[in-house]
């Protein structure tokens, strides 16, 4: 059987001739996307230049205004970036969009810091604007906007330390983001210099509208559409290592095609949990989109409840998302997994087996103890169906263990993958310490970064 949407790059039998071109197309698509973003980020600034006469306030204060306008624009775009809108998510991949959203928060903070510093440097009497009691409302709105942003960043960076559940954090994140943008716009209206008249005012309002629409799409419209394409829990199976496989069946529709290595946001359809969604990798073969499976380890409030789900429970699947896949046609694959990071890898292997893929695979799989090795029985079966060699690495091996023990590092990889690494496409998924040790190892062994596809799993 050959499925139309295979894992990895396609096997020989269905290979298309444009392998390397795909990588180039992907880069140029992302380049175009960045160019579009850059254009949007400076549109209000350009509109001010067109619509306003030169000021007479000196370089520092004009630069302060420029950074303020850019900051407000970036803030509006930040709301739209993670919204999984087709035009944003398709060229980038949803996980790349979220990573970019995090990195651009640094750029936003830098723009705000430059704005504040230059306002004071340009005119030291502006220090009075920071007097909490005597400052005009426009300055108070700006301070409140910054406070909302600071709270937003603090709750994102220290979510675990603050013991915020994922659902609670998301609600807070949305509210603080909208609050910061609203207060920032209020500040611009109060300043009444560049953004309140003419095309620049309209553009800024338009960008804020785009941000808000992104949020409305993500939180209201999208869930409503997904509710029309539900999935039912078919089986709930305990796996080794404290994981649970959730087998779903598309109800009244053919299911959405996905590629191995991609992920989806799952949420229970009942109203009590309608706002709580969590991202998980597909663990099933991409050849059966109507019966997707997710293998989930109990870490937090939602994941701990997965084993208790009953067959027939309605689940909404927002996916597939993610661009975790090979960018060229390789003739061999090295897969490195740690713990529950095996889930996208097992999907790759199941799909390869369903496709009759004859290329060689080596899986280096790190676990704590032998009895905790998730999918260990199935991996034995897959070794018979595929040209697959599995190297188990245990952190706490049992007495008499003849296999590998310790960490997945350069020495271990060199022992098991002599000569294979340079020609291979390498996929990794696991917890941060394992990933960084394995990535260091691959670097020392001379594997080119563009052939390494790493995904860090996060616990939510």
């Amino acid at each position: 059987m050959t499925c139309a949407n295979p894992a990895l790059s396609t096997p020989q039998s269905v290979r298309s001739p444009g392998g390397m071109a795909t990588a180039k197309r992907s880069v140029s698509r992302k380049g175009l996307w960045v160019a579009g973003y850059c254009l949007a980020a400076v549109l209000p600034l350009a509109a001010v230049l067109v619509g306003s006469p030169p000021g007479d306030r000196g370089l520092a204060l004009e630069l302060a205004s420029a950074f303020g306008i850019v900051a407000l624009t970036l803030l509006a775009l930040q709301l739209a970036l993670p919204a999984r809108l087709g035009v944003v998510a398709r060229p980038l991949g949803a996980e790349v969009a979220i990573r970019l959203h995090r990195h651009l928060a640094d750029v936003l903070v830098a723009a705000i810091a430059a704005h504040v510093a230059l306002v004071v440097l340009g005119d030291p009497s502006n220090l009075a604007l920071f007097d909490p009691l005597g400052a005009p409302w426009r300055a108070q709105a700006a301070v409140a906007s910054c406070a909302a942003l600071a709270a937003l960043i603090a709750t994102s960076v220290w979510r675990r330390k603050l013991r915020l559940s994922y659902a609670c954090w998301r609600g807070l994140h949305n509210a603080l983001g909208i609050g910061a943008l609203g207060l920032g716009l209020l500040h611009a209206i109060g300043v009444d210099r560049y953004l309140t008249n003419g095309p620049s005012g309209l553009l800024t309002a338009g960008l804020a509208g785009v941000g808000l629409l992104g949020l409305i799409e993500l939180r209201l419209l999208r869930p409503r559409r997904l509710a029309g394409r539900p999935y039912l829990v078919e089986r709930v199976e305990r796996e080794h290592g404290g994981a649970t496989s959730l087998a779903l069946r598309a109800e009244g529709h053919p299911g959405r095609r996905f590629r191995s290595g991609q992920f989806a946001w799952l949420r229970l359809a009942d109203s009590a949990h309608a706002l709580v969604e969590h991202p998980f990798s597909y663990s099933s073969s991409a050849c059966r989109p109507e019966r997707p499976e997710f293998t989930i380890k109990a870490y937090g409030d939602f994941t701990s409840r997965v084993p208790e789900l009953r067959p027939g429970t309605r689940v909404l699947v927002d996916g597939p998302h993610g661009s975790y896949r090979a960018r060229r046609h390789a003739d061999r694959f090295v897969l490195i997994a740690g713990g529950i990071g095996i889930t996208p890898i097992i999907s790759l292997l199941r799909t390869a087996a369903d496709n009759g893929d004859e290329r060689p695979f080596v899986l280096v799989y790190g676990s704590l103890r032998w009895e905790q090795v998730t999918f260990r029985d199935e991996l034995e079966q897959l070794e018979r169906r595929l040209d697959l060699r599995v190297v188990h690495v245990l952190k706490e091996p049992p007495p008499g263990w003849a296999g590998e023990a310790g960490f997945i590092d350069a020495e271990l990889l060199a022992r098991h993958l002599p000569g294979e690494l340079r020609r291979a496409e390498v996929f990794l998924c696991g917890p941060p310490p394992m990933l960084s040790a394995a990535l260091d190892g691959l670097e020392r062994l001379g594997v080119a970064p563009e052939h390494v596809h790493a995904e860090q799993f996060v616990t939510v």
């Binding site: 350009a46 001010v48 004009e62 640094d106």
Partner: peptide, 30 residues
């Protein structure tokens, strides 16, 4: 080691915004 494409994207956007702000200030204060 891992090729994180968001780094060049962020750097490009950051540089572009900085240049745009500088150009704006230079024109407005000229």
């Amino acid at each position: 080691m891992h090729h994180d494409e968001t780094r060049w994207m962020t750097a490009a956007i950051e540089l572009w915004c900085l240049l745009a702000a500088l150009a704006f200030a230079a024109i407005q204060s000229a």
